[in-house]
Amino acid sequence: MTTDEHTLIGAWALDAVDAGERELVERHLDSCASCAQEAAELREAVARLADVTIAEPPPRLRDSVLAEVRRTRQEAPVAAPGEAPESARDRRRRAPRSRSGTHRAHRLRLALGAAALAVVAAFAGVFATWSVMQQPGGEGDGSPIAAVLEAPDAEVAYKEADGGGRVTVISSDSLDDAVVVVSDLAAVGDDRSYQVWMVDEAGQVSAGVMDPGDSSATMLVEGLGDTQVIGVTNEPAGGSAAPTLPMVADVALDA
């Protein structure tokens, strides 16, 4: 956590930040419970500012909203922690894909398990035997990353990145998840972030933003859906709403 992200919480609560800063703050909140608490409290206070702007909408708005609602499908809920994995995944499969990026924090978790990382590194070059992961009591055991690596239908694809390094994707259709390993991309300054995208026919959605200045990361991407390509771009720190082309690497997933 940096002072910068933390002092931005106020501006964030007022929506007085740009898209990159919003992403930065929200990722910070994901990893800092007390900050999330403060942010939630400030949001409650900020919402009270709307007490003084209440105004009666035109009566036709009601009919119009209720009519649109009747033909609008509701989103699937975010899977609750501790829920049975299968039902969680089934739900995710049915979920319409969010293109807004609002929920992207839920779609990606940076994995920190060293064991998992080592295992993934082994896959990055060759197809190693899946039994490598079966280390009893290992850190990867039972983790979503290990689940992808151990999935019977896991597929590995990789691409050398422009400027050096490599992006490897291990994906499982049955789990609808993938592990993305970004290794040794060209060095960037603290003002730039590599950003990972899921691309399908309808367009792209951010799968997550790497920490500014980082050129390696391992991440779990949930809810692959019809994703055809995992792409990586070089963006301003904190990421962008839309990718800056050209891509640093694009990894095609098997259909």
Partner: peptide, 18 residues
């Protein structure tokens, strides 16, 4: 930076008052 900080401490004050 001043504005950023005043926004945050202003909101904290607002929260406490409300």
């Amino acid at each position: 930076p001043t504005v950023k900080s005043r926004i945050r401490d202003g909101l904290i004050k607002l929260r406490d008052c409300l």
